[in-house]
Design a binder for these strands. Structure first.
Length: 168
DNA sequence: CGACTTTGACCGGCGC
DNA sequence: GCGCCGGTCAAAGTCG
């Protein structure tokens, strides 16, 4: 009983018809337009675009190239795993993201992005992150060649490309 | 020294 | 009106 909280894998893509759905290996990137479903959604300044990324990983932190500062962690009902709250630390960028694990699959990580970045990927982070990134993947994906896209730096570039595409 | 994580407390919204 | 729950803040501590 995941309450549809977990749109991973083959199921759960029916409810969201007007959004992009991208799947590669164990990574699923779901783009949800915050405006969708709202009658007069045009009024908002909604910086709010919602992007849900489902991945299979041992670690919660999906490094997408941006700098995030954790500002909270909560255990939500229906899920024994805590949900983490992150903000983009770039000045003037109010993008937030929530990270939570699936209650059924400890390896399934649901990352929800809210808002769009008003800047590019910080370069300094870009390279240091590339180094810090590999610590988390090898053990997870070393046996899953299909997920190489998710586990390598390609993932970041791919995700970033998507985010940028959305943002603009 | 600066940036980031951790953790408890606080606040607002929602359902009963 | 009350209680529950999700989301955010802020202080202290940790790490590079």
């Amino acid at each position: 009983m995941v309450d549809g909280l977990l749109p991973t894998k083959e199921e759960g893509d029916e409810q969201l018809s007007s959004l992009s759905d991208i799947r590669e290996g164990d990574c699923e990137i779901r783009i949800v337009d915050a405006d969708v479903g709202d009658a007069d959604a045009n009024e908002r300044n909604v910086p709010g675009q919602k992007i849900i990324v489902s991945t299979t990983s041992d670690v919660d932190l999906l490094d997408d190239g941006y700098r995030w500062r954790k500002y909270g962690q909560k255990v939500v009902r229906g899920n024994p795993h805590p949900r983490s709250y992150y903000k983009c630390t770039y000045q003037g960028c109010a993008v937030k993201k929530h990270i939570e694990r699936s209650s059924e699959e400890p390896h399934a990580v649901i990352t929800t992005y809210e808002g769009k970045h008003t800047h590019d990927v910080p370069e300094s982070r870009n390279r240091s992150q590339a180094t810090g990134q590999h610590h988390c993947k090898e053990q997870t994906y070393s046996e899953q060649p299909a997920a190489s896209f998710c586990s390598s730096s390609e993932k970041r570039k791919y995700g970033t490309a998507i985010l940028n595409d959305l943002a603009f």
